[in-house]
Nucleic acid binder design. Structure first.
Length: 638
DNA sequence: TATCAAGCTGTTTTT
DNA sequence: CAGCTTGATA
C-alpha cells in the first residue's frame, strides 16, 4: 500500500484527536485502513481499535481490506456500524446498561407500533399526522437529541393542541415498546449514549477498553452519535474522516457541525485535508467542482485529478423515462459486446422508484445486475410474513410478530389474533406459551406446528426456513397471486440464513441492516451491473457511471423544496453521484412529467442545479424521438 | 368478524 | 402502481 504525503501525515499523526477532511475519491477508506495498519504496526493491540462505519457494507469492506493489508491479526479489530457497535457492547455488558432480552424493531415494526399508538389516542382523526410521519418526527428528535416537545413546536411547526396529542401518542408508543421489550434503532444509540453520559463508572469501563476509535463518514454523524464519540474520546484517540460536501443524511439527524466544530469541541485536536483525487479524470471533477462553486454555501473545495485529462461528461435529454432507460441499457450492452465488464457500469438513481424502468429492462434483456438500496429482501411483505414465525419462536413475547403471523391465516383477523396474543404474551415461559398456543388454535394444529417447528430448529436457521416454507406453502399460495416469483425469495433467505449459527443472530443481523434481494443473490466477485441509490453509493466507484433522472423533481427532490437547507442537501446528493465516476460520466434526464411544482408557489426549476450549467463543462445532446445516438449507426441497414 | 372489491392518494434518501 | 380506506356482504 502506498500513500501520498497528505495521507502519510494523517495516518501517522500523533495528535490526540484528528479530523481528516477528505474530498471524494481522495482515498478516505484507504487512509482509515492505513491508519489501522499503522497502529497495529506500532504495537497497538487489535482488540483496542474500533472502526465505526455507516453501513454494514462499508464495515465488511473495510474489514476485508484491512485483513488483506495487515494479516489475520487484524481480524479482532472491532468493526461495525454505530448501531452494531453499541449493541454488541450492551449485550456483552448487560448489567451496566440495564439490558435484558429484547427484540430489535425495524422500520416496519416501528410503523406498526406507532399506528397502534396513534389509533389508541386519536382513532381515525385525519387531522393528525400519519404514523409514518410521527415515526420520523420522533426519530429525528431523538437523533438530534432534543426533547420531542421542543422539536414539534419549533421545527415541525405544529400548533399547541396538536403538539399535546402527538406527545400523548409518543408516550403510548413508548409504553407499548416497553411492554413488548422492543428496542427501536434509536433506542440502541440512545441507551448507550445515555448510560455513558450519566455514569462516570460505565463510561470509564467502556471507553478504557479502547485506545483508538476510527470513524468513517464523520459528516453523517448525528448529535446522539457525537455524544457517544465524546464519551469515548475521554479515554481513546479519535481519528475521524469525512467530507462536508458529501453530507446527505440530514434527514436522519446528521449534523455537519460535528465536522465544522470538531476542533473547538475537542481539546488537543487537529485537522488535515486530503485534496488529491485518485478516482476521476479532470473533466468529471470540473463538473462536480462547478456544482459546489455555484452554491451559496462555501464548501471551499476543489478536487484535483491526479489522473489528469479525460472525456467530458455527457448530458442527454430524452422524451421520457423509458427512452432514457432504453438508451442506458443499450449503451451498457454495446460496451459489454465490445469487451467491457458488466461491473464497470453503475447506474445511480435518486430513489428506488426512478430505477424501475432501468431495472425492468435489465431483467428483460437478461443482464446480470444487483440493486442496492430501496426496500430490501427482508422488508418485502411475504418475507416478513415468514420471518414473523422465526421471531415468535425466538421470543414468544414479540407481539408484533404474533399479530403478523396469526392474521395470515384465513378467518383470523385482528380481533381474534389480538385475543390469542394477549394470552400468549402473559405467560411466563416459552413452554407455557407453547401450550397456550396449542390450546388457542384448537383443531387447527398447523398454525401452531409451524412455530414448534422453528423452535426445534433454533440452531439450524437454514433448515428451519426450508421446512417452514414447505409447511406454509399452501397458505402463501392462496394469499399471494404471484406466489411462484415470490417463493424464490425464500430459497434465497435460506441461503442467507445458512451463514448464521442460530435463528436469533440471523434475525438480528438483518434487522439492523436488511439487504435487498438482488444484492443478496449474486455471490461475491460476480460480474454484474450495479443499480444503486445515490445514498447507498457513497464510498463506491465505477469506471462508467450513469446518473438517471437528473431533472428537477429528482435533483432537488420535490419533497424537499420547502426548506433551503434540504435543497442544499440535494445538491450534495447530486455531487456524491457525480463524483462516483472514474472515466465516464453520463447524466440523463427527461421532462415528460412537465414542470414539477412546489405546491402552488415556485416551480422546481427555480432551484434546479443544472440551470446555468456552462456549455463547456459537458457534451449535451437531445435524443428526442430517436433512441439511437447517431454515433451508434452501423455500416449497413439490416 | 372476516373478506373482498372499488376507489383514492401520493410517490426520498437509511441505521 | 401499491397501499390504504371504505363500504357492502357472508
Amino acid at each position: 500500500m502506498e500513500f501520498n504525503a497528505e495521507q502519510q501525515t494523517a495516518l501517522t499523526s500523533e495528535a490526540r484527536n484528528l479530523l481528516v477532511l477528505a474530498g471524494a475519491g481522495t482515498g478516505k477508506t484507504r487512509t482509515i485502513i492505513g491508519r489501522a495498519r499503522h497502529l497495529l504496526a506500532t504495537g497497538v493491540s487489535p482488540k483496542r481499535i474500533v472502526i465505526v462505519t455507516f453501513t454494514r457494507r462499508a464495515a465488511s469492506e473495510i474489514r476485508g481490506r484491512l485483513i488483506k493489508a495487515a494479516g489475520e491479526d487484524a481480524a479482532t479489530v472491532v468493526t461495525g456500524t454505530f448501531h452494531n457497535f453499541c449493541l454488541r457492547i450492551m449485550r456483552s455488558r448487560q448489567r451496566w446498561f440495564g439490558f435484558t432480552d429484547l427484540t430489535v424493531m425495524d422500520r416496519d415494526d416501528q410503523l406498526q407500533l406507532m399506528k397502534l399508538a396513534r389509533g389508541e389516542i386519536v382513532g381515525k382523526d385525519s387531522s393528525i399526522a400519519k404514523a409514518a410521519q410521527l415515526v420520523s418526527f420522533y426519530s429525528y428528535a431523538r437523533n438530534t437529541n432534543q426533547p420531542p416537545r421542543k422539536y414539534l413546536e419549533k421545527f415541525a411547526e405544529l400548533d399547541p393542541p396538536a403538539v399535546e396529542i402527538v406527545l400523548k401518542i409518543f408516550a403510548k408508543y413508548k409504553e407499548r415498546k416497553l411492554a413488548g421489550s422492543y428496542f427501536d434503532y434509536d433506542d440502541i444509540l440512545h441507551r448507550f449514549a445515555k448510560v455513558l453520559h450519566d455514569s462516570d463508572e460505565v463510561r470509564r469501563k467502556v471507553a478504557q477498553q479502547f485506545d483508538h476509535v476510527l470513524v468513517d463518514e464523520m459528516q453523517d454523524t448525528n448529535p446522539l452519535q457525537w455524544l457517544i464519540l465524546e464519551s469515548l474520546a475521554e479515554y481513546a484517540h479519535l481519528f475521524c474522516v469525512g467530507d462536508d460536501a458529501q453530507s446527505i443524511y440530514a434527514f436522519r439527524g446528521a449534523d455537519f457541525k460535528n465536522v465544522h466544530s470538531f476542533n473547538s469541541r475537542l481539546p488537543n485536536s487537529e485537522t488535515l485535508k486530503l485534496e488529491q483525487n485518485y478516482r476521476s479524470t479532470q473533466p468529471i471533477l470540473d463538473l462536480a467542482n462547478w456544482l459546489l462553486e455555484v452554491s451559496d454555501l462555501k464548501y471551499e473545495k476543489r478536487l484535483r485529478a491526479v489522473r489528469g485529462a479525460g472525456d467530458k461528461p455527457q448530458l442527454l435529454d430524452f422524451e421520457n423515462e423509458y427512452d432514457e432507460a432504453e438508451w442506458i441499457v443499450g449503451r451498457i450492452m454495446k460496451r459489454h459486446a465490445e469487451g467491457a465488464r458488466w461491473d464497470d457500469h453503475m447506474v445511480l438513481c435518486r430513489s428506488a422508484y426512478v430505477a424501475r424502468p432501468v431495472e425492468g429492462l435489465l431483467i428483460e434483456r437478461k443482464i446480470p445486475y444487483r440493486f442496492v438500496g430501496g426496500i430490501g429482501l427482508l422488508q418485502m411483505a411475504h418475507v416478513r410474513d415468514l420471518l414473523s414465525v422465526l421471531r415468535v419462536a425466538v421470543n414468544y413475547r414479540d407481539e408484533l410478530a404474533w399479530m403478523r403471523y396469526l392474521t395470515l391465516w384465513p378467518r383470523i383477523g385482528e380481533v381474534t389474533a389480538a385475543k390469542m396474543v394477549c394470552k400468549i404474551v402473559s405467560t411466563s415461559s416459552s413452554s407455557e406459551a407453547a401450550s397456550v398456543l396449542d390450546e388457542a388454535v384448537g383443531k387447527r394444529t398447523e398454525i401452531a406446528e409451524a412455530v414448534h417447528l422453528v423452535a426445534r430448529q433454533q440452531r439450524a436457521p437454514s433448515e428451519a426456513i426450508q421446512q417452514l416454507t414447505q409447511n406454509l406453502e399452501p397458505l402463501f399460495e392462496t394469499r399471494y397471486e404471484n406466489w411462484e416469483s415470490r417463493s424464490k425469495d425464500f430459497r434465497l433467505l435460506g441461503k442467507l440464513a445458512a451463514k448464521h449459527q442460530d435463528v436469533a443472530t440471523f434475525l438480528e443481523t438483518y434487522t439492523l441492516d436488511p439487504m435487498s434481494a438482488s444484492e443478496a443473490s449474486p455471490s461475491e466477485g460476480d460480474d454484474i451491473v450495479t443499480l444503486i441509490t445515490v445514498h447507498s453509493a457513497k464510498g463506491t466507484e465505477s469506471k462508467a457511471c450513469y446518473v438517471v433522472g437528473v431533472q428537477p423533481g429528482n435533483y432537488p427532490h420535490t419533497r424537499s423544496l420547502d426548506d433551503a437547507e434540504a435543497i442544499e442537501e440535494e445538491r450534495r446528493v447530486l455531487y456524491v453521484a457525480l463524483t462516483r465516476a472514474e472515466d465516464e460520466l453520463v447524466l440523463t434526464r427527461h421532462f415528460s412529467r412537465g414542470p414539477a411544482r412546489v405546491s402552488w408557489n415556485a416551480p422546481v426549476q427555480t432551484h434546479y442545479f443544472l440551470e446555468r450549467l456552462p456549455k463547456t463543462l459537458v457534451d449535451s445532446k437531445s435524443l428526442f424521438g430517436s433512441l439511437y445516438d447517431v454515433s451508434w449507426d452501423d455500416d449497413y441497414i439490416g
